[in-house]
Write a protein that binds this DNA or RNA. Sequence first.
DNA 1: GTGTTTGTTATCAA
DNA 2: CTTGATAACAAACA
Length: 286
Amino acid sequence: MPELPEVETIVRQLDHRLTGLVFGQTEISYPKIISPLSPTGFAKKLVGQEVLRVYRRAKIIIIELSGDQSILIHLKMTGQLIFQPAKTSPVNLIVGGHPQTDPSKHTRAILSFRDGSSLRFNDLRKFGWLKLVNQETREKILAPHGVEPLTKNFTTKLFAELVARYLKRKIKQLLLDQTLVAGLGNIYVDEACFRAKILPTRTAQTLTHSETTALHREIIAVLKHSIKKKGTSARNYVISDGTKGGFVPYLNVYGRGGLPCKTCGTPINKIKLNGRGTHFCPKCQK
DNA sequence: GTGTTTGTTATCAA
DNA sequence: CTTGATAACAAACA
């Protein structure tokens, strides 16, 4: 599940590798991932365009091109973006615990560059997408997202205002809402709540001022820590060079249902909250 | 055949 | 406007 730290890791690597490359041929094996153009239209428009930079907004990857166009990419739950350098053997991947060579049967698109390198979009569950859009459409798609938690715009005051505005919402639900804070997903919401010692099931209105401050602080801290470790490879997230992120050993609750809390030894509780697997320590979190 | 995994949007309801 | 519930998308895995 690529969330902010995973997408950020991919983007940093791709920006470094793709900037300056010029697109050549494009192969689409699963047309439904492409919009708003047809795969043919997509390929035609892409040819000859140079990559200016690669950046991120929320969980969306933006490849900015010469001219007016950008490729927007969302990996959703199982998307992978693999960079294949020119004249090298296929990148090795681990998918669902099994070694796999890329490209695989889950490769949905291959965007080639004129120097012989290529970018592959793999997506087991076909939820992810690629859009080739102009600036105006790009901004229309990006605009509805909330504050970027790793920018100076994400102040304690702003976060407190959000908490005060959506009083009836459960904390977890509030944090998962991409229109409020952008980039958090199931993993980092659970982790941030643990670090702030707050139960994800509580409603916003029950938070004290110091709890709100702590939650704000821990959201930032856990995201930064994970980026430093290149993200969480809980399932099939890989970085664009096929390697895995290193944050799993630092997870306190996500994926640890029934295992002892690293702080107090109490078994981690796992419940369903609004249809999401939710993990917490019943003793450390109040 | 069943339940579980989750990001996002749509839809309906209150 | 806020909020809650549910389905839909889609495929693998236990």
